[in-house]
Design a binder for these strands. Sequence first.
DNA 1: AGTTGGATGGTCT
DNA 2: GACCATCCAACTG
Length: 215
Amino acid sequence: MRVDESGARRVGRIVETEAYLGPEDKASHARSGRTPRNAAMFGEPGHAYVYRVYGMYTCLNVVCGRPGSASAVLIRAALPIEGEDAMRAARIRHDLGSRRATRHADADPAARARIATRVGRLPVTGLASGPGLVGAAFSVSPDLDGIDLCSAEAPLRLEAPLGDVPGTIVATPRIGIAYAGEPWSSLPLRFYLAGERAVSGPGTPSTSRSRAVSD
DNA sequence: AGTTGGATGGTCT
DNA sequence: GACCATCCAACTG
């Protein structure tokens, strides 16, 4: 859940995660030991590890395990529960911001309209259906790195489950870590809710109509 | 429906 | 200088 200065809330249910086990996990950012970037991973459980990828996306992890174990869970997708419009606005801000970095695009109204149209057409299940999209929809910024996600006053925080865990949890290999080699690239450390359309990945793209499994 | 390449910049070798 | 815990537009069938 994200609470901004005006008090507006953006709430989502986490529907997809990945586990990163620690320094021995060749897919983990902790694989080369402690660095300035991954320092939060080596800290207190329940705190945030926020990092940037590909120059333009921020991803959110929840630190797990004992302090120093450097294990964490990447939040890969969420289903918006409250504040859907604020998430759309944040998505537009993010996309416009990354475009602004490209030269000669300052206040290009056509570009803004194009982005707003695309984001406006997204189904609610597509607003945070990927790690970079979670970061954009919830305005996860590098200054949130290391904050206590279990504090009731944190601007970004975890809340108690919104009821019973619905349906079945499926485990698959993690995404985008083929470089890590075996066994890390094959371990079933990605978890998602079966049938949840907000889940990212080839099997359940939120933008395409994946046919419901009959019966 | 599936594949490919571009954007983009910090981090590590 | 290469590599990314990514996403999207623009292709190909």
